[in-house]
Design a protein around this nucleic acid. Sequence first.
DNA 1: AAATAAACCTGATTCAGATCATTTATTTCA
DNA 2: TGAAATAAATGATCTGAATCAGGTTTATTT
Lengths: 231, 231
Amino acid sequence: MGIIEQFTGCTISPHKCRCFEKLSDEEQKILAEKSVIVKYKKGEIICKQGSFASHVMYMENGLAKVFIDNGFDTLVLKIIPDGNMLGLSSLSDENDKFQYSAMAYIDSEIKLMDIIYFKQLLSQNSAFAKEIIDIMSNNSVQINGRFFCLTHKQSYGRLADILICLSDRIFKTNEFVLPLSRKDLAGLSGMSSETVIRMLKKFHDDGIIKLEGKNFKILDHSRLKRISEKG
Amino acid sequence: MGIIEQFTGCTISPHKCRCFEKLSDEEQKILAEKSVIVKYKKGEIICKQGSFASHVMYMENGLAKVFIDNGFDTLVLKIIPDGNMLGLSSLSDENDKFQYSAMAYIDSEIKLMDIIYFKQLLSQNSAFAKEIIDIMSNNSVQINGRFFCLTHKQSYGRLADILICLSDRIFKTNEFVLPLSRKDLAGLSGMSSETVIRMLKKFHDDGIIKLEGKNFKILDHSRLKRISEKG
DNA sequence: AAATAAACCTGATTCAGATCATTTATTTCA
DNA sequence: TGAAATAAATGATCTGAATCAGGTTTATTT
């Protein structure tokens, strides 16, 4: 069997977005002219699945979720923290609509870049295109890991994953104020909010985390890790 | 709420792979020199998750599944029919390993293209790179649909999806010999083989399909479609 | 500050689908 | 061709987590 691969429900790509470095000064200047920075308040919709994609986005600072829905159910595909791109899957000429919706978890600043010029950059600057391919392939690895996690781990493992992700990759500290509601956590870990609440209580009672309202702290990181791993 | 989007567990991308048309005669010639066609027998492993990715692949003819596993469980990400690319997510410089395994469902012929030259083509021919981006974004849309389906539809809907996919997109006829075992179908629809067997029997008894051994026929396509849609 | 709404919590119930245990059919290959 | 292995089928049982129903606390609005 060999090495046992570990998949997590965390969807923060470790990939650093380096694509803009590949642009010439001139290209950067034009791109800047063709871009605007827009502020979104917590809870605001950033883009809507099915609507015409007139731009590609870059999260300057903030936190958002990317999700799809069929009118009844919702699936959170990934979280977008600082320095991540949004809307790349609309670069295909066949998919000129947004393939997913995005919503700000907290107040966020997002750069909107004209998609026509962005596509032109892809065609004229292959180093840039190569970087975009890199980002997309990293994204797909990330999504696949989350896919595996949500279909094969059970609830405790999935919730542990999300908590570890928030702590390790987003806030980079053991103690923080949860910006997400229990319902948000439920969406992220693919379960009902009642179940999330029960499990958080269990983690709390077991001394794995400390949770009072929105004040959150991981007390036993290695135990949480073990729960995440054994699913 | 607007239009209600339909997601299916089918993972055959409708996208036609046009990337090679974008290469010059010279580039095509060199690529051909750097490629080999390999025949895989039913059940053979085409690439192995975690091993070094020395090439990008193209399915000349055959049928394969792409899957990830953690040593215990397996998740089928997609099916690869004729004319599809395989291994694109290893184009990123950070992911020089195969991100997934692939196995031939039936005897298949696959073109293996040297990944170094393939990457060079991306860097020197931006129209080619743009086509690869198109393929990748179509792939991600496809995977997201499957992700939604496996996490939000229940078993009958998921199985119906797979049967419709096989019929409409792969064999393009209502009646064919199933190349997949019940266990394969279980893997594809993310459930146990016992459940698959029971549900196939139900579909059969209800007159929706006809199934004797491996001989398969869809009798009531619209009813199957309805089952797929309502989950 | 009162009214309303939203988020949070808890217990009871239910159920889809997994798992387990066997039996029967079909392949495989010695 | 016959033994062993694999795949298919079926029944019985179990369980993780959803759903439902109700209550409490915390935010928001007026």
